[in-house]
Nucleic acid binder design. Structure first.
Lengths: 134, 134
DNA sequence: CAGAATCCAGGCGGATACTG
DNA sequence: CAGTATCCGCCTGGATTCTG
């Protein structure tokens, strides 16, 4: 099993605070979106279906392992659909499900925010570092 | 140093693919927001300044270590401001910076999406699991 | 009360090799 | 081409203890 987040897992181990956060949808949602390669994959699939190999190239930097793993997680959550056209060689296509498409506007907003403010963050970071560590 | 994301660090280690993702603002933004406790802290600070202890209680489930660590990261990114009113016992207040406040609409949208669709995700997940593992 | 410091298990993700 | 399986180092985050 590849799916449940670190928190879910740990929450299962000890008994406490299941209540306080496990049920928070926002937290859970961000947990998915934050999952390292999700944003890149989603961005790629936003333009239409992609084959496995195409994704591998587009999302360069992701290990093949991570790519498959992430795609499976997205599939499990019903955000991405996988279809096999078995021929030789095999073709596998991934596409957004309708549910997955509802994510695009959200992603767009995050992107807009990030592009607008990433500079401020870098500045703040540089300032903080120079003040702190010298 | 507590700050740089797993990817940044690993990207530094090996030389490849710095190009393809390190610079993507969306990815970087989500990397922050996805940071496990950020959403909960932000949610709390959205209603106004909070003391350390208040946050500790509100974000129950976070270790003291994680709380401090996350707050420092947010501070470094210029999203949260820390002010010390030194008295005995000491008071420390955290509040959103103006930059941090620009995040609230984004968070709101994520929250709305999550609340609306988290059910679908759970359904999809249950279906997937029952099909896969039986 | 706020937080820094240390110790340590367990999980994450990279590299590699192998199947249909 | 698409995907699985195994091995393993490193980082993350929890528990605990100690200051101002």
């Amino acid at each position: 099993m590849v799916t449940s987040s670190a928190h879910e897992r740990r929450a299962g181990a000890r008994s406490t605070y299941l209540i306080s956060m496990a049920a928070c949808p926002t937290h859970r949602g961000l947990d998915r979106l934050g999952d390292s390669w999700v944003s890149l994959i989603l961005k790629e699939l936003a333009d239409g279906p992609r084959r496995h190999g195409e994704l591998a190239r587009a999302v360069a930097g992701a290990t093949q392992k991570m790519l498959t793993q992430t795609l499976q997680a997205l599939q499990r959550d019903g955000l991405v659909a996988r279809s096999v056209i078995d021929s030789i060689p095999p073709r596998v296509e991934y596409r957004l499900t309708p549910l997955g498409e509802t994510l695009l506007p959200v992603m767009a907003m995050v992107t807009e925010w990030a592009e607008r403010h990433i500079g401020d963050i870098d500045t703040a970071r540089a300032t903080y570092d120079s003040v702190t560590s010298n």
